[in-house]
Design a protein around this nucleic acid. Sequence first.
DNA 1: CATCATGTTACTTGTCTTGTTACGATCCGC
DNA 2: GCGGATCGTAACAAGACAAGTAACATGATG
Lengths: 151, 151
Amino acid sequence: MRNDSRLSRMLHVLIHMDKHQHSATSDMIAKMLNTNPVVVRRTMAGLREQGYVRSEKGHGGGWTLVRPLSEITLLDVYRAIGEPHLFAIGPADDQPQCLVEQAVNVALGDAMKEAQALLLRRLDSVTLDKIATDFEAKLTARPATSYSCAS
Amino acid sequence: MRNDSRLSRMLHVLIHMDKHQHSATSDMIAKMLNTNPVVVRRTMAGLREQGYVRSEKGHGGGWTLVRPLSEITLLDVYRAIGEPHLFAIGPADDQPQCLVEQAVNVALGDAMKEAQALLLRRLDSVTLDKIATDFEAKLTARPATSYSCAS
DNA sequence: CATCATGTTACTTGTCTTGTTACGATCCGC
DNA sequence: GCGGATCGTAACAAGACAAGTAACATGATG
């Protein structure tokens, strides 16, 4: 559990959901992600609130994709899961008295802000169907092997 | 303790060390950083191994800056402390079987690599004396206030 | 009403930086 | 050389946070 993998997992799930049109239960998704259904519900709650997926209780219920992959960017998903911290590093003190430390914070903070802006811009420029298309390309390149996890 | 603040702390310390030429003990540095001497020794060990500072035991010992601030970049310091993980996010699985997940990893990984490259480039372009100069500018702008932490 | 499935809470686990304690090694001054 | 100052290091606890897990309520379907 070294990284926060929520974004990665949600991208993975959404693309799979697009491939079969019927709904997927949290249990099925959990097996796909090698985790358990509570984690799935917890993480996908944000996607539901933002209207990217819908969940239905009871018999025959589960999760369904509401919007087309072409209308969902990686940034959308990142925001939907609550914009978790991107960086593992940071300042020792956010509001230091020491002017030296303030100057350090500015220098480091500027560099990190630029990197974050670039990353978010990149996430914004890629839609989920772009990834799905890349996947299809790989699939036709090696059609003999099993192409996906339990889906 | 939300972030890894080792880089931030080491930058702070190195600039202060440049300001008084006599050596500083781990205890003094620890008070400056609001931490304790063991953490200081632990983190500064990397700087010593890379030849940026020297430590001396015994009476009158402590830490001294070996190289001028103009010859130390933020990237140098980052490397000296062991290049800790920059990002808090990451893939759920580094070597997934699922081709969909592989495509997700590529998309996310590319964006992160770019952001990381930008950040490291930025760290490489700034020397410690640049930050020290920024500090001096602030100091002359408001000379009445106390300018630094216990130094 | 029995079952399936989500919703939610509470608690545990894993991992990593920090904090802390303890102890050994080394150097200086008396 | 004795004693205190100081670093070096190992061992372990604390804090934070995502992830894993268990328990139970809620709602929908047949």
